[in-house]
Design a protein around this nucleic acid. Structure first.
Lengths: 188, 188
DNA sequence: CTAGTATCGATACTTCGAGTAGCGTAATAC
DNA sequence: GTATTACGCTACTCGAAGTATCGATACTAG
């Protein structure tokens, strides 16, 4: 997610474009060592840069992980002809992403940190959740509180499974999740 | 949860029965300061005992919080004439408990810690989840994987709401959660 | 009442990770 | 060249988990 080169480049040495390297190193480290043992020192070492460089770009470990997740999730692929198809594809997409190596553990980790950290909670809500929430409100024509409920159910279920078992939710249960939420959507 | 006085009391000074005091101090501290700032030192001070006494009884902060939650949740009140009524009452009970001051934050906190700590995850699954899972399997006549799915959905949704907003789920959404899960139960 | 045992409180300590400070160096614009 | 900003590096502060030790205390057994 390189910053667009503005016509008026600011003075001084430009930042090296190592964001993607750091993100990859972050997910790899979290995947291999778990969230708690994935210290900023270790992530920096895995990325081959200095720890201070990380703190020059992201103000905290939580912010780093959040930025990493925003990058990893990317834009919402809301595909489908009907509202049902759109919501179903979004749920399957979320399940697949959270199941990728490192992403689920990183997500559960920041989520946990956010519980006791209102500032991080705001970052998480604004940077990560809001884009998908707004896109879903638009695509489904549903009010905010209803989309928030869907997100609580889907993301909460996926993270709870990941947190309690250390493994992503199996496909059969993702199917059940899709069926369950679609049934709620239908009953408008 | 005082230990039953066995006929053959072991030698030495008996433990002071301060478990309940510690549990109350734990929930109060977590409620007032949040999970991260609820250090063992502060919890001990709030309980009026030494930190070392806490570590003589529970091997880690996570184990203390888990024991506190086991005590706070208590036995599962699976009441109701039909399977639907039993499951509905269980969901509402879980929502009410997680909404109590300190409990939701403590739950989300240990849950987070457990993600990166397999030992704590085992304690959490064995001590806190298994009793309710087994009772639900028995009461509902449903297989393990299905009850586990219900637990993922219900607890995951409630914790996600708690974690993202800092506030427990409102009654309207708990109603929606009950409706949604019951609909899955019916479709056997 | 005394001996034995195990818990308590208190203090000090070790360990480790988040985040900061300072400095010399490298890369760019002018 | 100079100015400016990012980099790597080292060293540091701070806070919290968990440990070690020791004198004092509360029991039981005789």
């Amino acid at each position: 997610m390189a910053r667009a080169t503005t016509p008026t480049r600011p003075p001084g040495r430009p930042r090296s474009g190592v964001d993607d390297v750091v993100f990859a190193a972050t997910l790899r480290t979290v995947h291999e060592l778990g969230y708690a043992r994935a210290t900023v020192d270790r992530i920096a070492a895995a990325a081959g840069i200095a720890k201070t460089t990380i703190y020059r770009r992201w103000p905290s470990k939580g912010a780093l992980i959040t930025a990493c997740l925003v990058d990893a999730f990317g834009p919402a692929p809301l595909t489908g002809a009907t509202r049902e198809e759109i919501l179903a594809s979004a749920i399957r997409w979320a399940a697949a992403k959270i199941g990728e190596p490192g992403i689920g553990a990183a997500f559960a980790g920041v989520f946990t940190d956010a519980v006791s950290d209102p500032a991080l909670r705001r970052i998480l809500a604004t940077e990560l959740q809001d884009p998908y929430r707004l896109a879903l409100q638009e695509a489904l024509g549903e009010p905010e509180h209803r989309v928030l409920f869907f997100i609580d159910v889907v993301v909460g279920s996926l993270l709870h499974r990941m947190g309690m078992t250390g493994e992503p939710m199996i496909d059969d249960d993702v199917d059940a999740l899709v069926d369950m939420v679609l049934r709620v959507l239908d009953r408008t």
